[in-house]
Amino acid sequence: MAHRWGMVIDLDRCTGCEACVAACHAENNIATVDAAQAANGRTMHWIHVERYWEGEFPNVRARFQPVLCQQCDAAPCEPVCPTYASYHNSDGLNAQVYNRCIGTFYCADACPYTARYFNWFNPVWDKPLNLQLNPDVSVRGVGVMEKCTFCIQRITAAEIQAKAENRDVKDGEVKPACVQSCPTAAMVFGDLEDPSSQVSRLAGSMRATTLLAEVGTFPKVIYLERESSHANE
């Protein structure tokens, strides 16, 4: 049975601690570039926390929003790829096939969320830092576009396990690295196809929105708006 994997991020819980960012680097073999390349904007944060300042001192406010690949149902990155490296799979994931990618950059240009990252160089790990690499995830080389996969390796592992036990994947069984690390339980992952899943129930919240909804990408990452109970506004 096909799933429709999705994520809900409750911005009223998110504290901007960035545990998700570090967890993602560790889980997905994301290379660090260095200071010089970071200055060129070549870091690869599959998930990063956007910070929006509002107002001026002293009535200033900062809002945080973790932004990752929104796994859009109508993904602008997919139709532009000349090699079909970027495509939509039956579980609704925006897949990125590294083997096919020839680095045209079209997908990154098309993505309104700047969620795609290009390997400008072959990544380098000073030994023995390479021993931290997760064998469940491939190491991407130069010229390849990469992005959040919703931790496909964890989804696959759960599906294989479920099949071995002759059952369906349970709600909450798959936790991408970011979701698992989140201290305030701001992130919830699950099957949007299953109306009883936690993620489906939260997606029906009054506070549910999507990022850049007007672009019409129909993301499967749903944000729950931060509550405003500001006494002195």
Partner: peptide, 16 residues
């Protein structure tokens, strides 16, 4: 749960 710094603890052990 584990914070960002805690997650990076792998790089203490494998630090060159």
């Amino acid at each position: 749960t584990l914070c960002a710094r805690g997650q990076a603890g792998l790089q203490v052990t494998f630090n060159p």
